[in-house]
């Protein structure tokens, strides 16, 4: 229980720091900004209560917002992702794992399942985030390019992070 809390806190802080110190400064081609912090919700143990998914999403969103000066936008989209993530996990996880309290990851869900899960979750978050930030359809082309490019870039980062975690887990069984 305590270990679980520490692991969560670690990931929370790591992702917020990465986002605010590194990823917020990346504007690839002027459009794409990676936002891999949704990853925090995806790797929660399967049997986490749904209300805590929602709350964690909100808290993470608010933390990101405070440091990137987009108050409310990330919080709103992360809260929605927090509501939907358990459903997505249930859909993409292998059926034999559903009864036990597994940690969603590429190892437990297979790469295909985990990638589908993260693709949808990231797309939801990024689309909603950019829409709230732009808050108009004045320039839809730029908006859609922003969403698409950021989604692809974020996806690549998540694959990388997941790789690192897998190899790390193999060595230290974290």
């Amino acid at each position: 229980m305590l270990q679980n809390f520490f692991i969560r806190s670690f990931w929370f802080l790591l992702l917020v720091l990465l986002q605010t110190l590194v990823f917020n400064h990346i504007h690839f081609m002027g459009y794409a900004t990676p936002m891999p912090y949704v990853y925090f919700l995806l790797i929660q143990p399967h049997h986490t209560d749904r209300w805590s998914y929602v709350c964690m999403g909100f808290l993470l969103g608010i933390a990101i917002d405070v440091f990137s000066n987009t108050i409310g936008a990330a919080a709103a989209s992360m809260t929605l992702v927090g509501l939907l993530t358990p459903l997505l996990v249930k859909i993409f996880a292998p059926e034999d794992k559903l009864d036990e309290d597994f940690l969603p990851s590429a190892a437990t869900m297979k790469w295909s399942g985990f990638l589908k899960l993260s693709a949808i979750a990231f797309f939801l978050h990024i689309a909603l985030f950019f829409m709230l930030e732009n808050f108009s359809l004045f320039d839809p082309e730029t908006l859609f390019i922003n969403i698409g490019a950021s989604w692809v870039l974020t996806f690549l980062f998540v694959v990388a992070i997941e790789h690192i975690r897998m190899s790390f887990n193999k060595r230290f069984t974290l």
Partner: peptide, 8 residues
């Protein structure tokens, strides 16, 4: 969500 939008 309401809190988020109010903040927004």
């Amino acid at each position: 969500e309401v809190v988020s939008f109010v903040l927004l």
